[in-house]
Write a protein that binds this DNA or RNA. Structure first.
Lengths: 169, 169
DNA sequence: AATTACATGTAATCCGTTACATGATTGA
DNA sequence: TCAATCATGTAACGGATTACATGTAATT
């Protein structure tokens, strides 16, 4: 999913500024399947405005740049609908941990137990973050996505705990 | 993980040509956490050779370009060891499916059931692919990684089946 | 007859990050 | 006092994909 679609989608949930979009992508339920920096979000919003998919109104502020609040237009809704009709692309899961396991086997076998231990802690952290998000009582798809993430983290942690000994002996 | 490290790691499992590395990354147990195209693999191998981390011997073939078989050097082993000492970076999981769910809720709610159905089929396919890999009787970390992937796919499919109704009502 | 597998490599292009530029306010 | 939050935006740079270039042999 490109950043323009991501912005369109986030704006479908409500008006927002570029700064707010960045925050949602960095911290909210989006953070588990997407990333984006200011350097890509701001230009995307400008382009989407030029294309007529969103509009922008400015809110004057003292001591800092004007807030630019973006809203979806009817054309933008159509565009997003069109995108949603297409089948989502397969997931991209990139795990340095799994790669490290494969390579450590030959190169430094004594590192493996260590990698697994670190990983279990990693999952514990991820679970904590997701539980915090859940405690804010999200509803609908948002809740579903967070619970999905939680389930995946728990399944991964469980698998590690039950099977890691097969790696070290 | 950058492509140079990926090549180094794959070569730690045994000598290989660029073409073979590409195949492993596209089809083997690597395909579930990494990607790379010829356009990045060939230049990476050239660079690694220049840096002394791998060596290259050519095998003449009739009717097609010489096979260039790469091997890790001692320096390359050290380099890989150094990389493995560092903690792996957090996973990157990008799922257009999850994003589509969040956005479809507002824009085309009647698409949701459809998305979920497609997704269940997607998992079924992934499971088939992984089971095929398992049927080749891998061992060690390779087996572990494939079983890990299987477990994740099954957990995802199960979650969907048990919770998707909360999305549509 | 057409596609896939084999086998390597370069160039154009895209997409995105990082760093830079600017600057006030609030909390630790 | 130092970091973080708020707020936008551009330019340099990097990393990787796609398409191009070349050509045989086996399979469908």
């Amino acid at each position: 999913m490109d950043i323009k679609t991501l912005c369109l989608g986030i704006l479908s949930l409500g008006d927002a500024t570029g700064y707010e979009i960045k925050k949602m992508v960095a911290e909210g339920s989006f953070s588990f399947f997407s990333e984006a920096s200011f350097g890509s979000i701001y230009p995307a919003l400008t382009k989407l405005t030029d294309e007529g998919f969103i509009t922008c109104r400015s809110e004057t502020q003292s001591n800092r740049p004007d807030k630019k609040i973006y809203s979806l237009t009817k054309l933008g809704v159509k565009e997003l609908e069109g995108t949603l009709e297409k089948s989502p692309k397969p997931d991209k899961n990139r795990s340095e941990f799994l790669a490290a396991l494969l390579f450590a086997e030959a190169i430094s076998p004594n590192r493996i137990q260590n990698l697994v231990d670190e990983r279990i802690e990693y999952h514990a952290n991820q679970i904590k973050v997701l539980e915090d998000l859940l405690s804010e009582k999200p509803t609908g798809a948002s809740k579903f996505v967070i619970e999905y993430g939680l389930e995946m983290q728990r399944a991964a942690a469980k698998f590690l705990q039950e099977n890691s000994k097969s790696l070290t002996d």
